[in-house]
Amino acid sequence: MRARVFVMLKPSVFDPQGTTVADALHTLGYASVTAVRQGKYFELDIDAKTEDEARRIASEAADKLLANPVIESYRIDIEKTEAAKR
């Protein structure tokens, strides 16, 4: 199984990097881009039998390490892969 974990700063938390990227895009002429938020993306290959098991493990990993609950939230997508054979 492959878990895709998207970690983003919570909406209430100011994102200096995203703001800087937005400013750069405006400098490049992309006036239509009104806001940018920058986050982190992880791919976890997990040796799990079911999607639920993979989700549980990815969720635990996100809670413990991948995201800091004080400032970040996360979303997990699970995809079936041939990972077990590799």
């Binding site: 700063l9 938390v13 100011f14 994102d15 200096p16 990097q17 800087t20 800091n68 004080v70 400032i71």
Partner: peptide, 17 residues
């Protein structure tokens, strides 16, 4: 200490980047 939960809160990138 913040990450370990020994102190409350978190650090963000400096506002100046």
């Amino acid at each position: 200490l913040l990450e370990a939960g020994l102190l409350p809160g978190a650090m963000l990138r400096n506002r100046s980047v």
